[in-house]
Amino acid sequence: MSLSARRRHQSGGAILLLAVWVAAAWRVGPALPGPTALARATADLYRSGALVDALSGTLVRVALGYGLAVAVSFPAGALMGVDTRLDAFLGTYVTALFVTSVASLLPFLILVAGTGAGFYAAVVFLFAVFHMVLIVRAGLATVESGTRDAGRVYGARGWRAYVYVLLPAALPHAVAALRVGYNRAVKGAVVAELWIYAGVGELLHGYQRFSQTSSALAVVVHVVLLAVVGVRLLRAVERRYAGWRVVTVR
């Protein structure tokens, strides 16, 4: 699909969504706020400073766990992608945890790590790290044999093959891992906060208790923006530095 056609469809989708939203809000009544109620609630949240405080706390928690996930997943995935013994050793566990619902581990994590910064870091880390390991591993493992051959013929052997051929060839996957990992990290932070009644979670629980649906929706919209803006920025990095291969991860 051409870019202009895609933009047309996107605009069409947005207009349709807006129309459905307005109609539903009108039909449901106060339980579902419309666009104007949402705008008013957003303005109030900014005035009170509650949203900025909560979101900055969330961002710090994301940064901590996500940073840790990057630090672990990149070397682990990069080694698993080329070392079949290490892959056999770790692969089963990584895949098992990848398909496990991390949310189901939260009660256990509270018992182990308490409810402080360590808990948030652990949850965000666990949400992001397995996806990232598997994507980075796939990046290394799927380097085409022809690319490896060209490297070998022209003198890239041993560590040189790794540094000059395999790692650069896996760059598109590395950036995709950053993107997917960030998305997962934001989800993890919000889930953790909902459990502990902190940050964004505290706001959402409070608004739910007092039926302030427009304020709750305003918070949700900002969480979505936090994820979308980060992913968009990483997509721009992807296009700039790894545009030769588009890695699609769902």
């Binding site: 051959d149 013929v153 052997r157 650069p168 790894a242």
Partner: peptide
């Protein structure tokens, strides 16, 4: 015994490095 630049190869699928 193994590859060498003395025996340079040109491949059907080019096998260029797209990041360079």
């Amino acid at each position: 015994a193994g590859p060498s630049r003395e025996r340079a190869m040109v491949f059907q699928e080019f096998n260029l490095f797209p990041w360079r």
